[in-house]
Computed example of a mutant assay.
Amino acid sequence: MAAAAAETHSRTVETPYGRLHVRDTEGEGTPVVALHGFPDDSRIYNRLTPYLAPHRVVSLDFRGFGHSERPEKEVLEPGQREAELDAVLDALELDRVMLVGHDASGAVAVNYALAHSERVAGLVLLNCYYGDAPALRLPEMIRLLGDPHFTPLADALVSDPKMRGWLLAHTRRRFGYALDDPEGVAAASIVPQWFGENGQPNALVAIRAWTATLYPELANQDQHIANGELKELTAPVTLAFGEDDAYLSPELARHIQGLFANATLHLVKNASHWPQWDQPELTAQLIRQAGI
């Protein structure tokens, strides 16, 4: 059972990349800082946060997503997501945190821990990827958006609202979310990025910018692996993967576990790509066991 809800503050943090929106839930002990991937935002942690009480939980919207500043055009710079995270930690005066990374932000969390080990008490990775691997099955939609050979086709598809809806519907069949569930993760966090909400524009510019870096970033991650950097990471690493995810699967989770010297893997039953949404109480328990 979740503890009594702590107060959540909506903050705006100024960074070199613009204004970022941050959800900051009051608490004590080692703060949990939770990151989102694409194409969603910080609201993927709405169900999880109450189960982490009394710990402080900070979740942020990266530039261009959620309620953060929208650029008219964007080319994502190497290391920009890590720099955005660093700016948030500095602004909130968080010296040492537990990082939770999901989907594309799993790589952000790992990279940040490699560069700033003194600030990371531990890593929790939820249905993410790091580097290329035979077990990596990227969603067809993401592969299309990330492949520069198909940029004109991808631009044409996402510019058409009907085709955007079709792409989401196709992807959900394997990710396991319901588009028409008003209480589901899609309604809360995914659909607003694709279509906007309550006067807030969509996040298509940010989605296209982040997916455009996909393949170069996989190559950079492979280099970190080849250099043995992940094996040298001293922060404890916990993987919690929804076992019903047909893309970022248990097989991939076991591969990622092997990249670290001492990582713990938990497969979350009755959960797909968003275990923090499908099984928030169990996911919170695994985060607690990771050392907060």
Rank of each mutant, 00 (worst) to 15 (best):
L144F: 03
I190K: 04
L167M: 15
A212I: 12
N127L: 02
R208C: 06
P192F: 05
I142C: 05
A121H: 08
D147K: 01
G165K: 11
W194V: 00
T211A: 10
Y130S: 02
G146H: 04
G131V: 15
A178F: 10
L136S: 04
L136Q: 01
G131F: 09
G131C: 10
P134A: 11
V124R: 02
A156C: 11
V191D: 04
R172F: 06
F175E: 15
R173Y: 03
I190Y: 03
D147E: 05
V185W: 04
Y215C: 12
T213D: 12
R174I: 04
L125Y: 01
R119F: 11
E217L: 14
L125W: 01
Y130F: 14
F195R: 03
R172P: 01
P182S: 04
P148A: 05
E217M: 14
N220L: 12
I207W: 02
G199Y: 11
G196S: 10
G146Y: 03
R208A: 12
K162A: 14
P192I: 02
N202M: 05
L157S: 06
R164G: 05
W194E: 00
H149V: 13
L125E: 00
T171E: 12
W210L: 05
C128T: 13
N198A: 15
L214S: 04
T151R: 15
L145D: 02
L153T: 04
A219W: 11
L168W: 02
R164M: 09
